[in-house]
Design a protein around this nucleic acid. Sequence first.
RNA 1: GCACCCAUAGCUCAGCUGGAUAGAGCGUUGCCCUCCGAAGGCAAAGGCCGCACGUUCGAAUCGUGCUGGGUGCACCA
Length: 581
Amino acid sequence: MNLFAEIRVAVTDAVAALQADGTLPAGLDLAAITVEPPRDAGHGDMATNAAMVLAKPAGMSPRQIADALVLELTKDPRIAAAEVAGPGFLNLRLAPAVWQGLIKAALHAGASFGTSSLGQGQRVNVEFVSANPTGPMHVGHVRGAVFGDALARLLSFAGYDVTREYYINDAGAQVDVLARSAYERYREACGLEPEISEGLYPGDYLIPVGEALKAQFGGTLLDKGEQFWLAEIREIATDLMMQMIREDLALLGVQMDVYSSEKAIYGTGRIEQAIDTLRKMGLIYEGHLEPPKGKTLEDWEPREQTLFRSTAYGDDVDRPVKKSDGTWTYFAPDIAYHYDKVSRGFDLLIDVLGADHGGYVKRMKAAVAALSDGRVPLDCKLIQLVKLYKNGEPFKMSKRAGTFVTLRDVVEQVGADVTRFVMLTRKNDAALDFDFARVLEQSKDNPVFYVQYANARINSVVRRATDAGFAVDDATIANADLTRLSHLAELALARKIAEWPRVVDVAARNNEPHRVAFYLYELASDFHGLWNKGNDDTTLRFVQDDDAGTTQAKIALARAVGVVISAGLGILGVTPVDEMR
RNA sequence: GCACCCAUAGCUCAGCUGGAUAGAGCGUUGCCCUCCGAAGGCAAAGGCCGCACGUUCGAAUCGUGCUGGGUGCACCA
């Protein structure tokens, strides 16, 4: 139930009525009409721009149209008042019964309040994390993981059929390095001195891998050359790394639906097939690239390469799909992989990438546009860096200095819920400061705490009402007499609740889960505000001694807030707490 | 040199895909708890929305050109 959408229908119906009686001309485009919460609550409950938008095409002044709309709209029992303001805004004040009905609807819908049919069951693939399988996940990966997962939850809430997918980069040189590093740990496990030279991965996490290799092979690989063990150890080590990564993701509450392997694409003919498809479209050719201007490359030499004409789709230069030695570039299997996603029938693709992949976006979009004949949009969400702080002091991660922070470190220190919420309190394309001390602070500056505190208070109110001997079971609350909620402060809170479906809608349309986090903070703030008004005006307290009816109505309001907080936190992947401690 | 992202209050950031007098938190200033709902609340001060043109009833939002910061720029992944 989206109240704004419903009132918008009332507005367009009113326009239609005016067209029917000849006040307005026929054939007007009503698409630009919006019904929104006004910036200033003093202006009313909702505002519409209908008169301004229609003025020009109708050849009338906004004022004329607005006046006619007022007469028409006030026939609707839901609309208590309508007045023209400013340049032609129509401010609507809704009847208390509308807000009371909204609270009922929210309670009735429960966890599904705010879900929408926006997605219409369209299939969306969200690819995220896709960290190289060469070690445990570190803080740099956390934000992308949280963002991707929250986005998936948001889209699913908004009616999309969502698949979460991880693309394993297990085919490049980095997994050879992994295998060599693991081999040294294997030698170590066999009692030899490991030679972890420059360029190998020094991390301790490979020690158990070495031991596993010893358990499997004994000493049989010790005096063998790389050609005897590289492929096999690579396989074993990447499997073990992926196991670790899955565990890391689980710590954060992230569960992938599909893991796709880059290596598995090779040798299947799928790369050739994807490239051939592009070739048939005239988008693949053999040619030379110009050296980049303004940047001097000392070892530049012109080479003939197989190129993808991404410039046909707005890229800056064409991009190589084959290296000069004839092997595929990283781009080629990635094209095949995205082609695969398209042919699996997704209606929309989303890639969550680190900000350093910005230069990669245009070529990937070009490939997807070409291979899907422009039918499947690819939205690339770039995730900016997280700057780490401890007590206000920035600190840099360094493997050498031992200040390398893993995902596990973060979750163990601050918990998955806090980590997730904080990571979502910023737009994905803005850098985020993460202070280990501040995120655990129990004060109003900490949004996680503030929202959780509101939820805890709601539970505490219900407990208190129970202790006072009032019936607060679901059925009683659902049938409470809400006409007892008439105070402006209470109706204002209901109005905030009414915004929830709108927030979901806008957030999902833009693939911006952070909007949910900000909304929850505002909702919590309004709830705390009403609570605090109870200090001065005791009639605003939720539990009213000797008045079961009023108490039940107020509990209904509180529960409705709780419904939205739970739903919102659910989208963020954060567990609501019932009690602070 | 080119591309992408960012620029909003002293600080950290929102701003609902063009709407009204641009918002919140922190910080500052002033009020509010001997108790019954203060890990908090109320109020005030604080802005050429980086700059300049343009588009239109109307621009923080869209376009163009600048300025400043970040990221990335053949055969890496």
